[in-house]
């Protein structure tokens, strides 16, 4: 408890991190509020097409070329973006931590095999790989999450492996062995908790990049056609960008805000959790 307080004090000293946290919380609030503020299907054509924002008080965010409420789409889109960003991040952290800890703890041929495989995945351009995965399987939220996790885990794996390589030589690990702990317990209860700091920081940044990848896929029309997503709104608005640039601009601002917020939080966590920077 006292630790949590000290952590919060360090984190909140950083103005940018607080701003980031505020943005992220605001987007979460938007996603949570979406079904209450816009209970109807956001894909429904409810208004006159090409309503500019603030033109009609009933649709303060305006409408798109098909007369769909932009506000409803952006609010529901926040839900999708956060969902995909969070689950893809959790999935890639799980894969990355497993691969990295096994490679770092056991070393030798286990390390060789896992790391060569990791490098193979890393040599494939991530966006191309996600497009291929989504194109092969049907485009649903599930396959998009899988595709993003497949390209994102290698960086976590390398991070965790590096932490394990130094931590497994530490004497408290020896002390654990001397206490009779099994490999599994040593990895999970002794080494892993000590290597979580960089993983938490990487995860917040990874969530931002997951949201970007998803937006990119949707922009190209490879997103899940059954849900609204910020990227898809931009993609749809592209055709009318000269007459109605606001259709692309509004979800664009939402993406920028989400990515910026998460990046600021990540930086803030880094400063607050990294003991070498604490006295800055």
């Amino acid at each position: 408890m006292r630790n949590a307080l000290a952590f919060w004090r360090r984190f909140s000293r950083n103005r940018a991190a607080l701003l980031g946290l505020f943005i992220v919380l605001a987007i979460i609030a938007v996603a949570v509020a979406a079904p209450f503020l816009y209970p109807d299907d956001p894909m429904g054509m409810v208004a006159q097409p090409f309503l500019w924002p603030l033109q009609d008080p009933e649709f303060p965010f305006g409408s798109d070329s098909l007369g769909r409420d932009l506000g409803a789409q952006i609010f529901h889109g926040a839900h999708v973006s956060l969902l995909i960003g969070a689950t893809a991040t959790i999935a890639s952290v799980l894969i990355g931590v497993t691969v990295g800890s096994l490679a770092g703890y056991y070393g030798g041929w286990v390390d060789e095999a896992l790391m060569r495989f990791t490098e193979v995945v890393q040599t494939i351009p991530p966006f191309i790989l996600t497009i291929i995965v989504v194109a092969i399987f049907h485009s649903t939220i599930g396959t998009i999450v899988v595709a993003i996790s497949i390209v994102s885990w290698p960086s976590v794996a390398r991070l965790v492996r590096a932490e394990f390589l130094t931590l497994r030589e530490r004497e408290f690990v020896q002390a654990g062995i001397v206490m009779g702990m099994s490999d599994f317990r040593l990895i999970v209860t002794q080494i892993l908790p000590n290597s979580m700091t960089p993983v938490i920081i990487a995860a917040s940044l990874m969530m931002a990049s997951s949201i970007l990848i998803e937006a990119g896929l949707s922009f190209l029309g490879l997103g899940d056609p059954n849900v609204v997503s910020w990227g898809a709104i931009i993609g749809a608005g592209r055709e009318a960008i000269r007459e109605a640039w606001y259709i692309s601009a509004l979800p664009g601002i939402a993406i920028i805000a989400a990515v910026l917020g998460l990046n600021l939080v990540g930086e803030g966590l880094n400063d607050a959790l990294n003991p070498r920077l604490r006295r800055r």
Partner: peptide, 25 residues
């Protein structure tokens, strides 16, 4: 069987008490 002996029947302490304890617990 060896794991039962370690910590059960034979205990061990090290040179460096500074680093022999896990900092996060």
């Amino acid at each position: 069987e060896m794991r039962k002996v370690r910590g059960g029947r034979i205990g061990m302490i090290f040179q460096e008490p500074m680093t022999s304890l896990n900092p996060v617990f």
